[in-house]
Design a protein around this nucleic acid. Structure first.
Lengths: 164, 164
DNA sequence: GAAGATTGTTGTTGACGACAACAATTGGCT
DNA sequence: AGCCAATTGTTGTCGTCAACAACAATCTTC
């Protein structure tokens, strides 16, 4: 073994010519910092990841949760109505419902008044499951509070209330 | 505040399958209204669509804009550094740069100090183009102001500053 | 010099938004 | 009554995006 004499371990790369930043982020964002969209995008990624993780044990993603919630609060809605209300493509909702119906959380009932459409309902199993999902979602919401502060979360909801 | 853990919103319209709402959206969202993630998701969709539309004439999407901005403000960065700073997968950045380089806005220069990495720079054409993009992006930002209000936009940026 | 880490790259998977097309059905209009 | 337009659910395609996995070339470290 060579008796190494190099004790330093300074973490600089130095020497070279190419902008080798110390390490971390002294990298400027320039115009980006003034853009709401950028901040919102980063925040949304964070919030979704936390949601997915917090509801991981029940394997429910944000979109699934929103569908279940709306159906639970408005039994009998058509797929069209749910899609429109949530801003989801009705084509996409088909797959979402296929999945949820496969898990026995939701059932499609043929409407008698309009034989084209389906009336959406939670199954009994779906009701109790949704109750649990809501508890976990509330836990996720507390994570958000911890992250940005209780007052800020309230303010955020208020500012964006128009988009719900 | 998410009151108690018993969000019993009784509006059971059950019975048959046909709960034919008048027309529009008197459809309740129930628990969803208390979730920051839902509002943020809807807002983000809106804001991205406006960005894409406003920068449509130059065919620049939000992610491309963020990449150009960061490279413009920090010439010589490696792909790894840019990816890390923007929270993009480095695999994804490859395609983004392929596109931007194909449009002669960015160039990858082989680093001499580390022959694995590329130093990223804007081309002359990229510089002038970015200036235009920034003007259009500012216009988009004004749309955001019109939508949620000037003060609210500021507050939003402040609340989410930690995620940039 | 060998072992391990990093960088750029390619490829795959899955969620998601946007569209287009289609059959079945309903509603409007004459 | 009959016909045409619109609606509903469905299937399919395309492009964006995040998350991984694997790989060759190259650095770092011992």
């Amino acid at each position: 073994m060579t008796t190494t004499a190099a004790p330093t371990s300074l973490r600089r790369r130095a020497g070279n010519g190419t902008t080798r930043r110390n390490e971390a982020d002294e990298i400027g964002l320039d115009a980006l910092v003034g853009h709401a969209g950028y901040a919102v995008r980063r925040f949304q990624i964070w919030i979704f990841q936390d949601f997915i993780k917090t509801l991981g044990e029940v394997d429910i993603r944000p979109t699934q949760y929103s569908v279940l919630t709306v159906i639970g609060a408005n039994p009998g809605l058509s797929q069209m109505a749910v899609a429109k209300r949530l801003g989801i493509e009705r084509a996409r909702l088909v797959h979402l419902l296929d999945s949820l119906e496969g898990r026995k959380l939701v059932k499609r009932i043929k409407s008698k008044s309009d034989r084209r459409s389906h009336a959406l309902h939670l199954t009994a199993q779906g009701e109790t499951a949704l109750a649990k999902f809501k508890r976990l979602a509330a836990e996720h919401e507390r994570h958000v509070e911890e992250k940005i502060g209780k007052a800020n979360r309230e303010r955020l909801l208020q500012i964006l209330a128009g988009f719900t």
